[in-house]
């Protein structure tokens, strides 16, 4: 019979076609759905993250793992009430006004979701007002901004200023990233954190949520 470990392994290997059968076996065996999620599916993703960070897994493999986890979740979600899946936190993410780069942003979204965060993707070319409106609407724990151009990085500064002006700054943590961004720049404009790439960004958010 399938074990929770088998489910984890299935997620790690990204075996999209097999995960449903395994999860169904566990459900049928009366295992608590929350246990299957935490000790099966999410446990699998928790192995994926460090392997990606150390260069032993490629992004497409991580994506397959994430897809596999989501496939398993589809079976489990109807069995639990909404509040039962604990979100690690909510984050809204966007590429700043004037900038169209979104590969890095999309990677981060994928990593955050598979780590248990609720993510709102604002997209690219996001104006200051749109960040403000999104914070008001979604009440996130964290706001993530991305910029790949030297001529758009200052938009992070103006967005933070706008959030401060609207009295929203204290309710959120702000993280930023992108090619021209440095720790020093993050400090200069008053962001709470900077991260070089998607996997360290996830760790950064983890630290922020537990701090």
């Amino acid at each position: 019979m399938a074990t929770l470990n088998d489910v984890s392994q299935c997620v790690l290997d990204g075996e999209l076609d097999e995960v449903k059968a395994l999860v169904q076996q566990l459900i049928d065996a009366g295992i608590d759905p929350i246990t299957i999620i935490n000790d099966g599916l999410i446990a699998g993703m928790n192995i994926v993250a460090p392997l990606f960070k150390s260069g032993e897994m490629f992004v497409p493999e991580v994506m397959e793992s994430a897809d596999t986890m989501n496939e398993g979740m589809k079976l489990l979600k109807p069995l639990i009430t909404d509040g039962d899946i604990p979100s690690k936190g909510k984050i809204i993410i966007g590429t700043v006004n004037g900038d169209l780069h979104d590969i890095g942003k999309n990677l981060l979204i994928m990593m955050m979701e598979s780590r248990g965060y609720t993510v709102v993707d604002l997209g690219v070319d996001i104006k200051e007002e749109a960040f403000v409106a999104a914070v008001k609407e979604h009440k996130p724990d964290i706001v993530g901004m991305s910029s790949l151009l030297t001529t758009t990085m200052m938009k992070m500064d103006s967005t933070i200023k706008q959030l401060t002006k609207e009295g929203l700054r204290d309710q959120i943590k702000i993280i930023i990233g992108g090619a021209p961004i440095t720790q020093e720049f993050a400090e200069d404009i008053g962001a709470d954190g900077y991260s070089e790439d998607a996997s360290t960004a996830v760790e950064l958010c983890d630290r922020m949520m537990t701090a």
Partner: peptide
């Protein structure tokens, strides 16, 4: 070449 970090 390109500009340093700045708004246009």
């Amino acid at each position: 070449f390109t500009l340093p970090g700045m708004d246009i």
